[in-house]
């Protein structure tokens, strides 16, 4: 007797499956390729800028080197984005909860559209509004802040006469990132399984307690993801900051004074038109650093989301 041949039935290949798997593979690799191309460009063009002889770089002030040039910009970028996130996140969660769990259905729908509309406003418009409307309108309250809360270093002053300060820029950024955080939070809050909401209510939870015990923990990874998208936008936002802020390369925590730090992206936008030669490479190098910062911020967010994976409700 011959040994029975092991027959491995080949899975039937259907054209639809093949097309789909190929297009998914192409899309996936395309993202990686684009990212690699961007990173490659930044490194190729930026690294010479990093190690250029400070004497030959005209955008450095006297005796400055690359590190001294870029550190205040990194500070300004992180500071503006963090302030914007601190202001926008609680508001966004509040609006999202109102839409998903409190507002009557018709009002909720209308509100949702308006929030989405806010996301469609170009950043130049936000910049114009911030520089020409908000700055002037908010300046008197800066005076008040200095008089009453001046003992907090953040509001030490002296107050800027134009109102075009770090706080104004951060408010504009907060308004800009509000829609994306709200939209994503609203979606995840709406996806809370009714099963668990009913479990909480049946235990005698009030509506707010139900939200606290079920909706918020369930939506947490989504809210963090939304916040990171918002933060990414705030870190990279160029026009609005460049238009509102007349900053310089300083590290200042005062939010309402006339001396303000600038962000990496705004600095590139402001200096690029007049940059030449090695200066361009220096600016691209700052872009490379922004790229790295965004990467680190996103990794931290991933880490936070994954840390309590067992309890995420996804299993």
């Amino acid at each position: 007797m011959t040994s029975p041949e092991i027959i491995r039935p080949k899975a039937k290949q259907r054209p639809g499956d093949r097309v789909f798997s190929a297009s998914a593979l192409i899309s996936g690799s395309l993202i990686l390729a684009i990212l690699a191309a961007v990173a490659g460009f930044l490194m190729l063009q930026g690294i010479p800028g990093m190690f250029a002889d400070p004497e030959s770089v005209s955008i450095y002030t006297e005796g400055e080197n690359f590190v001294e040039f870029v550190v205040p910009l990194i500070f300004g970028t992180l500071w503006a984005a963090a302030l914007a996130l601190v202001m926008a996140l609680p508001l966004a969660i509040g609006i999202a909860l109102f839409i998903s769990h409190y507002a009557p259905r018709r009002l909720a729908q209308g509100l949702g559209y308006i929030i989405d509309l806010l996301a469609a406003v170009p950043s130049v418009v936000f910049g114009l509004w911030g520089a020409n409307v908000l700055a002037g309108a908010i300046q008197p309250s800066f005076v008040w802040l200095e008089e009453n809360l001046g003992w907090i270093p953040l509001f030490a002053g002296p107050v800027s006469g134009t109102g075009r300060t770090m706080l104004t820029a951060a408010i504009v950024l907060a308004v800009m990132i509000l829609p994306i955080i709200t939209a994503i939070s609203r979606e995840v809050f709406l996806q809370t399984p009714p099963l668990y909401e009913e479990a909480a209510l049946a235990l005698g939870a009030t509506r707010w307690e139900m939200i606290r015990t079920v909706v918020l923990p369930f939506g947490r990874p989504g809210v963090i993801a939304g916040a990171m998208l918002g933060l990414g936008r705030a870190l990279g936002e160029t026009m609005a900051v460049a238009m509102v802020l007349s900053g310089s390369g300083v590290i200042v925590f005062d939010l309402i004074g006339s001396v303000n730090p600038l962000t990496i992206a705004a600095n590139v936008a402001l200096r690029f038109p007049e940059a030449y030669g090695i200066n361009v490479n220096v600016l691209i190098a700052t872009g490379l650093i922004l790229f790295a910062i965004t990467l680190v911020v996103n990794s931290i967010a991933r880490y936070i989301v994954n840390r309590r994976k067992d309890f995420s409700g996804a299993n």
Binding site: L195, Y196, E198, A200, T213, P217, F218, G313, N315
Partner: peptide
């Protein structure tokens, strides 16, 4: 109340 589908809070 106890429901048809077991619903312990997954986040706890």
């Amino acid at each position: 109340m106890v429901f048809q589908r077991p619903n312990p809070f997954p986040t706890m």
